[in-house]
């Protein structure tokens, strides 16, 4: 179990990549994004309100994602975020960067991919 500090630093570095990846296929709302991160990381990564939303707003401000209030029948209106074309380019670049980073770490630490 990583220490709290490591957890935060890691999250900071990778959070943008995580969120952009999650809205790549279809628009999602904030709670859904948080749930998916929890679920897919098997609880290793956890975003709460205080960490998730400022991040979303920052990405939106940069023009990588765009939020829109959507009303669906029988549901409350929710804010869905989708990837913009600028976001797509960023995502691709960040993926490459992350891959290189992970590979470099692996080569040094000797950790092999599963």
């Amino acid at each position: 179990m990583a220490s709290a500090i490591l957890d935060r630093e890691l999250k900071k570095g990778s959070a943008e990549l995580l969120i952009l990846s999650l809205v790549e296929d279809r628009p999602r709302h904030g709670y859904e994004i948080a749930q998916l991160i929890d679920l897919r990381s098997h609880g290793t990564l956890h975003f709460n309100v205080a960490s998730l939303y400022p991040l979303l707003y920052r990405l939106e401000k940069r023009g990588w994602i765009r939020g829109r209030w959507v009303e669906k029948a029988g549901q409350r209106r929710r804010r869905y975020y989708r990837l913009t074309s600028a976001g797509k380019r960023t995502l691709a670049a960040q993926r490459d960067g992350w891959r290189e980073f992970v590979e470099a770490i692996s080569r040094i630490t000797g950790i092999q991919h599963a």
């Binding site: 904030g30 709670y31 948080a34 309100v49 939303y53 929710r78």
Partner: peptide, 9 residues
């Protein structure tokens, strides 16, 4: 937006 999230939680 945030209160919805908290309510869901």
């Amino acid at each position: 937006e945030l209160s919805q999230h908290l309510e869901d939680q």
